[in-house]
Design a protein around this nucleic acid. Structure first.
Length: 569
RNA sequence: UGGGGAGUAGCCAAGUGGUAAGGCAGCGGGUUUUGGUUCCGCUAUACGCAGGUUCGAUUCCUGCCUCCCCAGCCA
């Protein structure tokens, strides 16, 4: 046994887990592992956040005694809303993670942060600056030139104390002053050129109301939040790498507990945008029907689309964690969903584009109940009965007047199997005055009940079907990629990502017919519609008597591939 | 340009001073009452480039190239 089973079943050792393993060995943080997921409640969570959630919560689950806090980084009242905190709470718990009693808000630490700020002022490491926003930019210098020191940089500690107190008391208008850290205006890292710690903002906070009129900046607040919560490993994305020196500086100057920040590459997905700002734009401009539109990469969109928490967590495990910027193929996400749903979704029949078939030698008015297994992958899923009648619907695309090579579906004179029912042979094609095919007249073989005969006859094609008289009408929504380009951000001069929108990303089929069992389909339950894909009831548009189903993902279609190849050559 | 990061197949991603896992995608085939699933097999001369150290480097050193991040009183 060269590799023990524990190693085999544990997650791969990415560089972050390797660091934590090492910290545990050396006794750093006394063997504790405590992470946090710190979303700003200014939008809905998306699949990129799922990666971060699975990382931080996943690590907490893996290490003995590990914990992960859910903390709202609500330091900017201008952009944040309570609706977002509710959705975030729902999404994280839906993914299957628990913060137990550790639900925190940065705004709950504001008092403490102010005390720390006064400490820094007393230490001569922070000052009140009267420069305007534009002037601050001007004084900051550029990438290659050092900045200039603010004329207010050397105010006395007493004056700073007084001024900052009055800022907090609301004596000054928005934007008139800031509290800044006194570091180094010539520092090669621009983040260290006397960064702003507090700005004046007379804004109503979604949680704290009108209690505050100064709000802390991210760099100042975040490390303090982590420190207060005794976080050991503060995991964030790459763009914060250049902020780490500042994260450390504040905590060291304050002499308080210091977690270590570790950065990893954020998730990019092909054909997908991940920016909250752009997602918000899609919502506001009604390109989609909400944050939870099934085409959105948001957790709520994926949920409405029919994704399972398991499939998303599996996806996050598979993409790995590294510092290299990368774009994951959206096909991997779909693969994870198919793999999960294949095991658990019950099979049912639904016809998306109905073509009527009359079985001329089948008795009128007769209803025969055919037995069908619910899931060949899972015998415990049991069986159900499906009504078979003289008139049924099959998929219009399952009939060709002229069958191409290797096509073994229905065509004039050809015999196919109706899944769980009978063999039928197409005898006649009926058309309307415009020449469009309106129905097919077929005959069935009574000896093939159940879809099988013992005479050795070979029937390659198997079609799904629904009784024309017993089936129920439904609307079915098919989705395609929301963007036409692999990288939606890639646009011509003067255009923006909206010009890459796929105009055909939503296809509504409103005269579908589904088997009766779907009459009481439940929200959140996945179904495999035989041969067409995995579907789930839409929670927004379904109405009693007219269910609406969303296609979560199609089934692999090797015939489509073959046909493309045949016609191409 | 100053600072900070990153470069392993089409896309992710392990890994080691001894000559490179796995997954997705792709391709071929067996099974199949879903052209699904599953199973078997295959492919791509993948370690950014150039030197150096070494018996031997993707792994160590040097130089270079490319890409990403930072000049919000956003996070």
């Amino acid at each position: 046994m060269t590799k023990n089973t524990q190693e085999d079943t544990s997650k791969p050792r990415d560089f972050i887990r390797t660091i934590i393993d090492h910290d545990l060995e050396t006794g750093k943080y006394d063997g504790r592992v405590q992470t946090r997921f710190p979303p700003e409640p200014n939008g809905y969570l998306h699949i990129g956040h799922a990666k971060a959630i699975c990382l931080s919560f996943g690590i907490a689950e893996e290490y003995p005694g590990g914990k992960c806090n859910l903390r709202f980084d609500d330091t900017n009242p201008a952009k944040e809303e309570d609706e977002y905190v509710r959705s975030i709470i729902e999404d994280v718990s839906w993914l299957g993670f628990s913060w137990e009693d550790r639900l925190f808000y940065a705004s709950d630490y504001f008092e403490q942060m102010l005390e720390y700020a006064f400490q820094l002022i007393k230490k001569g490491k922070a000052y009140v600056c009267d420069l305007s926003a534009a002037e601050v930019v001007e004084y900051r210098g550029t990438l290659t030139e050092p900045g200039k020191e603010s004329p207010y940089r050397n105010r006395s500690i007493e004056e700073n104390l007084d001024l900052f107190q009055r800022m907090c008391d609301g004596e000054f208008p928005d934007g008139s002053r800031t509290l800044r850290a006194k570091i180094d205006m010539a520092h090669p890292n621009l983040n260290m050129r006397d960064p702003v710690m507090y700005r004046i903002l007379h804004a109503r906070h979604h949680r704290a109301g009108d209690k505050w009129c100064v709000y802390p900046m991210y760099d100042w607040a975040h490390g303090l939040e982590d420190s207060i919560e005794r976080i050991t490993h503060s995991l964030c994305t790459l763009e914060f790498e250049a902020h780490r020196p500042l994260y450390d500086w504040f905590l060291i100057e304050l002499g308080v507990y210091r977690p270590q920040q570790i950065e990893f590459a954020r998730l990019n997905l092909s054909y997908t945008i991940m920016s909250k700002r752009k997602l918000l734009q899609l919502v506001e401009e009604k390109v989609v029907d909400g944050w939870d539109d099934p085409r959105m990469p948001t957790i709520s969109g994926l949920r409405r689309r029919g994704y399972t928490p398991e499939s998303i967590r599996d996806f996050c495990d598979r993409i790995g964690i590294a510092k290299r910027e990368s774009t994951v193929d959206v096909a991997l996400l779909e693969h994870c969903l198919r793999e999960d749903l294949n095991k658990r979704a019950n099979r049912v029949m639904a016809v998306l584009d109905p073509l009527k078939v009359v079985i001329t030698n089948y008795p009128e008015g007769k209803i025969e109940m055919m037995e069908a297994e619910n899931n060949p992958e899972d015998p415990s899923a049991g069986k159900r009965e499906i009504p078979f009648t003289r008139e049924i619907y099959v998929e219009r695309t399952d009939f060709r007047e002229e069958a191409p090579r290797k096509y073994f579906r229905l065509a004039p004179g050809k015999e196919v199997r109706l899944k769980h029912a009978y063999y039928i042979t197409c005898q006649e094609v009926i058309r309307d005055e415009t020449g469009e095919i309106t129905e097919l007249h077929c005959t069935y073989d009574p000896k093939s009940r159940g879809g099988w005969t013992d005479d050795g006859r070979k029937v390659r094609g198997t079609l799904h079907w629904v009784s024309a008289t017993e089936g129920i009408p439904a609307e079915i929504r098919l989705f395609d990629k929301l963007f036409l380009k692999e990288n939606p951000g890639e646009v011509a001069e003067g255009e923006n990502f909206l010009s890459n929108i796929n105009p055909d990303s939503l296809k509504i089929l409103d005269n579908c017919i589904v088997e009766p069992a779907l009459g009481d389909a439940k929200h959140g339950v996945p179904y495999q519609f035989l041969r067409t894909g995995y579907f789930t009831l839409d929670k927004k548009f379904s109405k009693p008597g007219k269910p609406v189903f969303n296609r979560s993902v199609s089934l692999r279609d090797s015939w489509a591939k073959l046909e493309k190849k045949l016609s191409g050559s």
